[in-house]
């Protein structure tokens, strides 16, 4: 098994990073997970952490060195992670369990399998075109699909972050599964949180990946999304692989699992600072600020009066 992989998570302009990401591989199977803890709820990052940790641990237990049934694995791991979050909340008498989205992908035998709950996404990209993509569990996304609002409106819609499936919720997550998707050399599989896809026009992600150079394109994509996210940029996380032909010569920076012992794993989990900013003091309005505001308003009144 051979691939090039890049992962990175950034807080954006938020005081905390509630995204968690990880990948893990054995000789014959690769797992990638992105979880986006939900801010409205208590300790979103805890839910995300539990999900990512639980799923990678399950993978390490079961991928020996491959999984018997990747879909069954994903279904079990995600559902159990959901229950692990509920248990965590119950143990601590939390009034409400923390919640998180989750998208997880397995690649083995050059076939990709994925599953998701919420609005963290997976794109399978071939030659700069989207081969397959997850469908967000969000009403707004469905409204776009149904033509009720435009994609443009959706980027500003306040419910764009509201999802109807997640881990840790009162209802069991609704998990959607992909088709078995055979990968070819040069194909890119990209997982990301909404902080990445949210601010970007639809075609940017596949186009950015058209070179297949995930090591360069991924951080560039994060830069672009963060810039477009502006003052309010959400947490941004990405994991992207470029699938390699197993028989080709080593590509720089790629991972080859050929020589790995059957029972070993390599796991990469991003670590995060947990700093929280204190309450902001009121911005001070000086006399000059007041004068300037009044002048601006009067200028606008003049300009716009007919």
């Amino acid at each position: 098994m051979k691939f090039t992989i890049y992962q990175e998570s950034r807080p954006g302009k938020r005081p905390t990073n509630e995204d968690r990401i990880a990948y893990c591989y054995s000789r014959d199977a690769l797992l990638m997970v992105v979880a986006d803890g939900m801010g409205g709820h208590l300790h979103g990052e805890v839910a995300a952490q539990i999900a990512v940790q639980y799923i990678t641990e399950s993978f390490q237990r079961e991928a020996k060195p491959d999984l018997k049934d990747p879909f069954l694995f994903l279904s079990g791991a995600i559902n159990n992670a959901h229950h692990a979050i509920l248990d965590y909340a119950a143990d601590r008498f939390l009034p409400d369990a923390p919640r998180t989205t989750c998208v997880a992908c397995i690649v083995q035998d050059s076939i990709a399998y994925w599953a998701h709950a919420g609005d963290s996404r997976l794109y399978a990209i071939r030659g700069g075109r989207i081969l397959a993509q997850t469908r967000d569990h969000s009403r707004v996304a469905r409204m776009v699909e149904d033509g009720l609002i435009s994609a443009e409106d959706a980027t500003r819609h306040p419910a764009r972050n509201r999802i109807f499936s997640c881990l840790g919720g009162t209802n069991a997550p609704q998990i959607d599964f992909s088709k078995k998707t055979p990968l070819m050399t040069g194909d890119v599989v990209l997982l990301c949180s909404d902080g990445v896809w949210g601010p970007l026009p639809a075609d940017v992600i596949p186009r950015a990946m058209s070179t297949g150079n995930v090591l360069q394109a991924s951080p560039a994509l994060l830069n672009q999304a963060e810039a477009r996210g502006g003052e309010n940029a959400d947490n941004l996380s990405i994991i992207a692989i470029r699938w390699e032909d197993s028989y080709a010569e080593d590509t720089l920076g790629s991972v080859s699992t050929k020589t790995m012992p059957i029972d070993s794993f390599t796991t990469q989990m991003e670590a995060f600072a947990k700093a929280r900013k204190g309450a902001q003091p009121l911005p001070n309005l000086s006399d000059e600020d007041i004068e300037r505001a009044i002048q601006e308003i009067n200028a606008a009144i003049k300009k716009f009066s007919k």
Binding site: P283, A293, I297, N298, A300, I301, F304, S305
Partner: peptide, 29 residues
């Protein structure tokens, strides 16, 4: 003063709107 800022926001926005069905702002001082 902070609330004043919000009063300004109202004026700023209204200043740009010239529509028969929206009250017209004439001056700010």
């Amino acid at each position: 003063r902070y609330g004043m800022k919000c009063f300004f926001e109202e004026g700023r926005a209204l200043a740009k709107i010239s529509h028969p069905n929206v009250v017209r702002v004439l001056n700010f001082f």
